[in-house]
């Protein structure tokens, strides 16, 4: 894709080097209060940063050995991973840990240095499936959420352990979350939301059951998320946000309807969210940048085939070359 209209302004080009520097420096800000206030996101943060660097073509920018050490230091006796060392295990961080290890081609380290190899990680995840509904909890205390169901499918399939859970039951649960508008909600009966649509469609994709989706209806609802300035919102009447470029865009890509929205206008909106001086992306033009929005903005550009961004896998939100290799094993 060529630079979009309005070319000439620096913020209409992807400032690759600035973004790489921004992500590399995230970890060197340990003396700032904000660093400690976001400790609950640490392992997620590494996944977002590492994926973004892969998509920018700089996969080596984070030191491999240190990253693996950090991931393993977050593992708990039950096999799951916490957000940072000393934090309780939770589905969200366990999925990030698996994704990071896969990207570093280091799943084998679980065998060598982890607790009980990948089987132990798999049994932590499988243990969170709710027998009654087939959905998944975030941890022993938590409630059910299709986010956790998707996370479980994502990590287990990457580990080659999807057969350790009841897939048909989970699939039936997702179908219960489908609404008349074609979208999906957080529980059966709850209003459609793009984030939840992504998790449900992604889980169905991993289960090989995209045939269960009414693609015209869902594609219609998703395409209505694009607003006049090119960005996507999460649900009707809400403000656009760069991260929805991913939740909405990847869902459209999985059901082969990405051409139902205007890609050039979306790319232009995403580029307006970047900070061309210091790197990184915010949720909207002019807002503070963070690694979460940086990652999802870049992933959104990748879906659109934007020049200079590596191809992303819309199901896993990881570099396509890596998931292809991992899943063919």
């Amino acid at each position: 894709m060529s630079p979009v209209s309005g070319a000439g302004q620096s913020d209409q080009y992807l400032c690759v080097q600035k973004h790489v520097e921004y992500i590399k420096n995230l970890d060197s800000r340990r003396d700032e209060l904000e660093y400690w206030l976001t400790e609950h996101l640490r392992l997620n943060g590494v996944y977002w940063g590492l994926t973004a660097l892969h998509l920018l073509g700089c996969p080596q920018a984070l030191p491999r050995e240190d990253t693996i050490n950090f991931v393993l230091s977050c593992q708990r006796e039950n096999g799951g991973f916490g957000a940072a060392p000393g934090h309780d295990a939770h589905m969200l961080y366990t999925v990030s840990a698996v994704q990071i290890l896969v990207m570093l081609d280091a799943v084998g380290e679980l065998e060598k240095r982890g607790l009980g190899g990948k089987q132990k990680v798999g049994s932590f995840i499988a243990g969170l499936q709710d027998e009654k509904t087939g959905s998944f909890m975030g941890d022993e205390w938590g409630e059910l959420d299709t986010r956790f169901l998707y996370g479980a499918f994502n990590a287990l399939s990457l580990l080659g352990l999807l057969d350790t859970v009841d897939v048909p039951k989970a699939v039936a649960y997702i179908q219960e979350c489908e609404n008349l508008d074609g979208g999906y909600g957080i529980h059966p009966g709850a209003e459609s939301h793009s984030g939840q649509v992504f998790t449900c469609v992604g889980a169905l994709a991993i289960a090989g059951r995209l045939d269960l989706i009414n693609k015209d209806r869902l594609g219609g609802w998703l395409s209505e998320r694009q607003v006049d300035n090119g960005g996507f919102n999460g649900r009707p009447e809400k403000l656009e946000d760069a991260c929805y470029s991913w939740w909405v865009g990847a869902s459209l890509a999985m059901i082969d309807k990405l051409h139902w929205i205007n890609g050039d206008k979306l790319a232009a909106f995403i580029l307006r969210c970047q900070d061309p001086e210091n790197g990184g992306f915010g949720d909207r033009p002019g807002n503070m940048v963070d690694v979460f929005h940086t990652h999802f903005a870049l992933a959104g550009l990748s879906l659109l085939g934007y020049d200079g961004v590596e191809e992303v896998d819309p199901v896993y939100c990881m570099p396509k070359a890596i998931t292809t290799k991992c899943l063919s094993k």
Partner: peptide, 10 residues
């Protein structure tokens, strides 16, 4: 609705 032209063409 030019944003969703692809949808209407399909």
């Amino acid at each position: 609705d030019p944003l969703r032209r692809g949808r209407w063409l399909d």
